[in-house]
């Protein structure tokens, strides 16, 4: 599956998702975000059991504030509309998959 670009308008999709959700909060100008971004794309491609989303912190300051994001990239795992895991900073692929499998 491809990555879902999430804004305020379609955020409900994540809250109502039956699949476990991975959200990548990022900005285009941030080096570590650009390191993580292709890894998140790969997970979306390889793991259809997850709903993988990206939220641009510059375009979506309200969503970022709602999740208390003050560091990017921030990776969030959500299940049944609730936050299960939250992790600031770039992570290797294995560590992100481990967050999802917890």
């Amino acid at each position: 599956m491809s990555v879902l670009k999430v804004t305020k308008e379609n955020f409900d999709v994540l809250k109502k998702s039956e699949k476990t959700v991975l959200i990548d909060f990022y900005a285009d100008w941030c080096g570590p975000c650009r390191m993580v971004s292709p890894i998140v794309d790969e997970i979306a491609e390889e793991c259809p059991q997850y709903l993988v989303a990206k939220i641009n912190v510059d375009e979506e300051p309200e969503l970022s504030a709602a999740f208390g994001v003050s560091s990017i990239p921030t990776l969030v795992v959500m299940q049944d509309g609730k936050i299960k895991e939250i992790s600031a900073g770039a992570r290797p692929k294995a560590a992100i998959l481990a967050m999802l499998q917890k």
Binding site: C30, P32, G68, V69, S70, S71, I72, S87, G89
Partner: peptide, 17 residues
Amino acid sequence: LTGRGVHYCAHCDGRFY
């Protein structure tokens, strides 16, 4: 507290402040 007020990359996280 890393990423929640403690940071190691000003270039990445400065704009939140």
